[in-house]
Amino acid sequence: MITVEGIAKKYGKNSVLEDVSFTIPKGKIIGLAGENGSGKSTVLKIIAGVLESSNGSVKLDGTEVTRRSAERIAYLPDLDLFYPYFTGEELFHYYGSQFDDFHYDKACIVAQFLNIPLDVKIKKMSKGNRGRVKMAATLGREATYYLMDEPFSGFDPLVREDLIKGLIQFTDPETQSIFLSTHEIREVEPLLDGIIVLHNGKIVAQEEIENIREEYNQDTVTWLKKLLKEGDKVEQ
C-alpha cells in the first residue's frame, strides 16, 4: 500500500500542492485526474522519490520513501524523448543494468505484444512506438508499484488501446498496484478501480469507479465535470 500523508510542495511562494493525503491499496489500478497544472506530475514525482516534498510523508508498505525506494517503484515519466539515442534493445539492456527487477525477456514479450521493432533508434520511432517502447521497458520490471505519468496522452485510439491491453496483460492484480495520471478519463475508465481528483493542488475526491456509476448513475467523465464546476463555484 502507498500511503501519502499531508504532502505539500512549494516553489518559492508558489504553492503547487497543499495537504495532499490518500492511499493506494495493493492490487488496484488508480487514476489521478485533474486539469493541466493541478499538480498531478508533482504528486507522482514525489511518490517516485525523484522530487522532495516540502511537507508530509510518503510510505510504501509502512516504510518512508527515499530515492532508494525507486527499487520497488517502476516510474514511467511523461517525457516524449526518452533515451533517444538507444534502440529499443539497448534501452532494455540499460534498464537491466539499472534495475534488479528488470526482466529482459519479459520486456521483449511485451514489446512483441505491442508490435514494436527493437532494432530502431528511439528518436527515429513514431510517437506511438515511442510510447509503446516506454511502456514495454516499464512493464519489463517486476515492481510492486507502477507509477505512470500520462502513459496514454497524445496517442491515437489504436495506440492507446494497445497500451491499455498491455497494462492489463502484463500486471498482476493480486500483487501489483498501478497509479497513473491521465486526461483521457473516458477511454481509461474501464481500466481503473478508482480515481483521485486533484484541483489546484488539493484532493477534491477519491472514489471507486463502479461506485460512481452505481450511486450517482453517471460515468466518471460526467461526475468529474460536475465536481470541478462545483469546486470552482465554492472557491469564488
Binding site: G27, K28, I29, E161, I164, K165, I168, Q169, P173, P190, L191, L192, D193, E210
Partner: peptide, 16 residues
C-alpha cells in the same frame, strides 16, 4: 479472467 479482461480492455478486478 485475464484473457477476457484484455480483450474487453477492462480491469482484471472488474472481470473477476
Amino acid at each position: 479472467v485475464r484473457e477476457y479482461a484484455v480483450e474487453a480492455g477492462v480491469n482484471a478486478n472488474t472481470m473477476q
